[in-house]
C-alpha cells in the first residue's frame, strides 16, 4: 500500500551555459512512493512555484523510458540505482523515508549545461549525421522479403538499435566517451545486409566525428552499467574492428565484403 516519503534533495541549479552553478537544498515532503522520480520533481516544482521560486528545469518527455530525453545523475549514478532503467522509470518506492538525494546534470565537455539539469546533447546527432543511416532514397526499395536476414542477425541488430540516445553512457564514462552510443548505431546498421555498401565509410565517418567531441574508451565498462537499455560492450569491440578494417581496406573492394 502506498506510503509517503520525506526527502532532502540537493539539486544542481545553474542559470545558463555560462553562469556558475551550485547545489541547492530542497525538502521534498509527502512524496507518494508510487510516484516516479520525475513526478517527485514535479511536486517539488509545484512547491517552488507556490513559494515564488523558479522551478527546476529537468529533461523529460515520454516518461516511458523510450524517448531518451530524461537523464540525470542521481546519487552519483546515471539514471539512478536501478539497472536498465531510465530516470523516468525509476520510482520513489526504491528510496527510503529521510533519504538525501543528490541530483546533478550529465557532465562532459561536449554536453554543456543549458540550464539546471538540462544539458545540450546535440553532438550525438552530429555522430548520426556523419553516417548513421542507410542511403536508400524513398521509392527505391525492392520488396522487403527479397533480402533475407537470419533471425539471429536481425535480433542482434535490434539489440543495438534499442539505444535511446539518452547520453547516460557518456555521463557515466570516466573519459566522457561516446563509444557505446556510436558503436550501437554502427552495429545496428553494419550487421544488416542493407548496411553493407556503406559499412566502412560509415564507420570511419562516425568514429572520427565522435572523436571530435568525446573522449577515448579505456574499457571501464561504466557505460554498460548506466545504459537503460543494457546495450552490450561487445559493440565497442566490433566498432574498433570495423574501424581498423575501414582504414586498411581498399574502398572499392570494401563495399563488396561483409
Amino acid at each position: 500500500m502506498s506510503q509517503t516519503l520525506n526527502l532532502t534533495l540537493k539539486v544542481w541549479r545553474q542559470e545558463g551555459p555560462d553562469a556558475d552553478g551550485s547545489f541547492e537544498t530542497y525538502k521534498a515532503k509527502n512524496i507518494p512512493d508510487d510516484a516516479s522520480f520525475l513526478e517527485m520533481l514535479d511536486v517539488v516544482n509545484e512547491d517552488l512555484i507556490d513559494n515564488g521560486r523558479t522551478p527546476i528545469e529537468f529533461p523529460h518527455d515520454c516518461r516511458e523510458g523510450i524517448c531518451g530525453t530524461c537523464g540525470v545523475m542521481i546519487n552519483g549514478r546515471a539514471h539512478g540505482q536501478e539497472k536498465g532503467t531510465a530516470t523516468c522509470q525509476l520510482h520513489m518506492r526504491k528510496f527510503s523515508d529521510g533519504d538525501t538525494i543528490v541530483i546533478e546534470p550529465w557532465r562532459a565537455a561536449a554536453f554543456p549545461v543549458v540550464k539546471d539539469l538540462v544539458v545540450d546533447r546535440s553532438p550525438l546527432d552530429k555522430i548520426i549525421e556523419a553516417g548513421g543511416y542507410v542511403t536508400a532514397p524513398t521509392g527505391t526499395a525492392a520488396d522487403a522479403n527479397d533480402t533475407r536476414i537470419p533471425k539471429e542477425a536481425a535480433d542482434s541488430s535490434m539489440d543495438a538499435a534499442a539505444c535511446i540516445g539518452c547520453g547516460a553512457c557518456v555521463a557515466a564514462c570516466p573519459n566522457s566517451a561516446a563509444q557505446l552510443f556510436t558503436s550501437a548505431k554502427l552495429w545496428h546498421l553494419n550487421s544488416l545486409p542493407q548496411g553493407q555498401p556503406e559499412r566502412y565509410k560509415r564507420t570511419e565517418a562516425m568514429v572520427e566525428t565522435m572523436e571530435q567531441f568525446f573522449g577515448a574508451c579505456t574499457n571501464h565498462g561504466e557505460c554498460y552499467e548506466a545504459c537503460p537499455k543494457e546495450i552490450t560492450l561487445d559493440f565497442i569491440g566490433y566498432m574498433n574492428r570495423d574501424y581498423i578494417k575501414s582504414k586498411v581496406k581498399n574502398r572499392k573492394l570494401a563495399g563488396q565484403q561483409s
Binding site: T140, D155, S157, L189
Partner: peptide, 22 residues
C-alpha cells in the same frame, strides 16, 4: 506495402522468422 519495403531498406530491424523472412 511500400512503407515496409522502404523501412526494411532503411535498416529497420523488423522481427524475422528463422528463414530470414519478415
Amino acid at each position: 506495402t511500400n512503407i515496409i519495403d522502404q523501412m526494411a531498406a532503411q535498416g529497420v530491424p523488423f522481427a524475422r522468422e528463422y528463414g530470414g523472412l519478415l
